[in-house]
Amino acid sequence: MTQERNDIKEGAGSEKMKAMLNDAIAGELQVSIQYMWQHVVWKKPEGYTANDEIKRIAIVEMKHAEMIAERLNYLGGIPTTKPYEIVLGGEDIHEQLKQDQEAEERTIKLYNDIIELAVNEHDVTTRHLFERILEEEEEHHDFFTSFLDD
C-alpha cells in the first residue's frame, strides 16, 4: 500500500498546479493578515459594524492557507511563507473594504482557474478542495460588496 501511495504522490500535480497553489497560499496569507489588522485597528463607529465579521473572515482565510499548504505539500511542492503585499487603507474604512473586495475578486478568479486545471489534470481532490474554499470566498466577496453598497 505504501508503494502505491508513493507512486501516486510522485506523479501528482504539475509544476503549473504547484505554482498556482503557492499563489493561492500567498493570497490567503495576505488577506488573513490584512483583515486581522483591520479588526484590531478599526475603532470608529463605522468599523464596529464590520469588526466581528472581518475577524471571523481573517481566521477562515488562515485556515484556507493551511488546507492549501497541506495539499501542496502532498503534491510534492514547498508551501510559501510569504504573503502578497498587505494593503492597508488607513483611516478610510470604505477604501480598505474596496481593496478587500478586489482581493476577493482576484482570489475567485484564481480559484476558478485552479479548479479548471484540476479537472484537466484529473485531480479530483484538488478540485473538491477548491470548490469548497471558493464557496467561502464568494461569501466573503458578498460581505464586502454588501457592506460597501450600504
Rank of each mutant, 00 (worst) to 15 (best):
Q3V: 13
Q3N: 08
Q3I: 14
R5A: 09
N6W: 02
N6L: 13
N6V: 14
D7S: 09
G11D: 07
A12C: 10
A12L: 15
E15Q: 14
A19N: 15
M20P: 00
L21V: 06
N22S: 08
D23E: 14
A24H: 02
A26Y: 08
A26G: 13
A26S: 15
E28G: 01
L29M: 03
Q30G: 04
V31A: 04
S32F: 14
W37K: 12
H39E: 12
H39Q: 10
V40H: 11
V40C: 07
V41K: 11
V41G: 00
K43V: 14
K44N: 11
K44F: 09
K44M: 14
Y48C: 05
T49S: 08
T49H: 07
T49W: 04
A50Q: 04
N51Q: 13
D52C: 01
D52G: 12
E53Y: 07
E53M: 13
E53Q: 12
I54S: 04
I54Y: 02
I54D: 06
K55E: 14
R56P: 01
A58I: 01
I59K: 11
I59A: 12
M62R: 15
A65L: 01
M67H: 07
M67A: 15
I68R: 00
E70V: 01
R71G: 03
N73E: 11
N73C: 13
N73I: 05
Y74Q: 03
Y74R: 05
L75G: 02
G76I: 07
P79M: 07
P79Y: 10
T80F: 06
T80V: 01
E85N: 07
I86C: 04
L88T: 09
H94I: 03
L97C: 09
L97K: 04
Q99I: 05
D100F: 06
D100R: 09
Q101G: 03
Q101T: 03
Q101F: 07
E102C: 02
A103H: 08
A103C: 10
E105R: 12
T107W: 01
K109Y: 09
Y111W: 08
Y111T: 04
N112R: 14
I115C: 10
E116H: 08
L117G: 00
A118E: 00
V119S: 13
E121G: 12
V124A: 13
V124H: 13
T125S: 15
T126I: 03
R127D: 05
R127Y: 06
L129I: 01
L129C: 10
L129D: 06
R132W: 06
E135H: 09
E136I: 03
E137P: 08
E137S: 03
E137R: 05
H140E: 12
D142S: 13
D142C: 09
D142R: 15
D142Q: 15
F144Q: 10
F144I: 13
F147T: 04
L148G: 07
D149H: 09
